[in-house]
């Protein structure tokens, strides 16, 4: 199975201009900041088939897109990005 976002890692990238690289870096930096700011916050996770979970956000494997989150009491779980549709956190 392909990882999410293989698109931006294709061979076409050799043609990418500085402007594209700059935009990509800016967007990626923002994303990483927001994701890392979500650590430890109470999240709501929406999965395929109407499955909803509430769990504190643990950490993310930004490479494979795996999210780690405690589920239940003292249990940690890994959520696959492919299983997830959306997740959200309250802002401070």
């Amino acid at each position: 199975n392909s990882r999410p976002g293989e698109n931006s890692r294709g061979s076409e990238n050799s043609r990418d201009s500085g402007a594209v690289q700059k935009a990509r870096a800016e967007l990626r930096e923002r994303f990483l900041r927001l994701l890392s700011g979500a650590r430890g916050r109470p999240g709501r996770f929406c999965l395929w088939g109407g499955i909803r979970l509430r769990a504190d956000f643990g950490a993310a494997d930004v490479e494979s897109g795996t999210l780690q989150t405690p589920l239940g009491i003292q249990r940690a779980a890994l959520l696959r990005s492919g299983d997830l549709l959306e997740f959200s956190f309250p802002l401070e």
Partner: peptide, 14 residues
């Protein structure tokens, strides 16, 4: 190739 001049910074964050 992806991030140009910002590559090192992004890599460090990741």
């Amino acid at each position: 190739k992806l991030y140009g001049a910002e590559a090192a910074k992004i890599q460090a964050m990741e």
